[in-house]
């Protein structure tokens, strides 16, 4: 029984974007694990603890050298081993189709795959589906609840859709689940966990060994732009009644909303 969890390093959410001669950089070089992926790691560990005690949990990432840190954190949280798919540096980023193919190829034999619902860097919302397609697995994204039926090789999954709609699925394994926030409370790595993580194996694979050159697509934007600077905020003065009247007028007459 193999469980995998796909994680990605993304820029710190506090960091500002800086544009210098058309080159994009961040005010803070620190990177974090994609916040949704933390919930995915927790979900993978709980799947093992609660339903599949003999399973092995592999954390997998595709990314630059620094992404090893993300894998070490996942190992410290309790994952058993890790795979790092490395690639040549590139100013753009890999198309989600290529990422999904690479991870799909690296996960040779797998019963359950957990991903974050999307990366908060490019919000592609696509990789889980491509992995699922590579192995003819079920795929459900924006998962809010999971119940395991290990004897039947099935899962009961609740997914959130638009307008707060909840969709209930009966889902055969193997399956890929895209995890949203609120499914669980990700654990912190423990001190012994951190010590143990240092000894756990990280297998290194190269992108070029997993995806053929013709299938490897980089997204290279022609230009970047920063959002337009906002004009100064118009402060509405006066007592409460005056402020409410003025705002009501603005909504009606200036913004034509009523």
């Amino acid at each position: 029984m193999n469980i995998a969890v796909c994680i990605k390093q993304v820029p710190n959410t506090e960091a500002q974007v800086i544009l210098n001669d058309g080159i994009l950089a961040f005010s803070d070089p620190k990177k974090i694990i994609n916040p949704y992926d933390e919930f995915a790691i927790e979900a993978a560990l709980r799947a093992k603890e609660q339903a599949f005690p003999d399973a092995s949990v592999t954390a997998i990432t595709l990314g630059p050298e620094s992404a090893t840190e993300a894998l070490r954190t996942a190992l410290a949280m309790g994952c058993d081993q890790a795979i790092h798919i490395t690639h040549e540096p590139h100013p753009g980023w890999l198309a989600p189709l290529t990422v999904g193919q690479a991870i799909g190829a690296a996960l040779r034999q797998v019963d359950l795959v957990f991903c974050g619902r999307q990366g908060i860097d490019h919000d592609d919302f696509t990789v889980p589906y491509v992995i699922a397609n590579a192995h003819q697995m079920s795929c459900i994204n924006v998962v809010k609840e999971i119940t395991y039926k290990p004897e039947e090789k099935k899962l009961w999954v609740v997914r959130e859709s638009d307008g707060g709609q909840k969709e209930y699925f009966e889902c055969p394994m193997p399956a890929v689940l895209g995890i949203s926030i609120g499914l669980n409370k990700p654990r912190y790595p423990s001190l012994p966990g951190i010590m143990k993580a240092k000894k756990k194996a990280i297998e290194s694979l190269n992108l070029t060994d997993l995806v053929s050159d013709s299938n490897c697509t980089w997204i290279q934007p022609s230009t970047y732009e920063l959002p337009k600077a906002k004009e100064a905020c118009k402060m509405i003065k006066g007592d409460i009644a005056e402020q409410a009247s003025e705002l009501a007028r603005i909504l009606k007459e200036d913004l034509h909303i009523v």
Binding site: K230, C233, I240, A241, L247
Partner: peptide, 24 residues
């Protein structure tokens, strides 16, 4: 929030919001 707002009101929302609803 005022740095990116177009219109700002410095007030207690518990007083202002019901007043606004009433006016509308």
């Amino acid at each position: 929030i005022f740095k990116i707002a177009d219109y700002g009101i410095v007030s207690d929302l518990f007083e202002l919001v019901p007043k606004l609803t009433e006016k509308l």
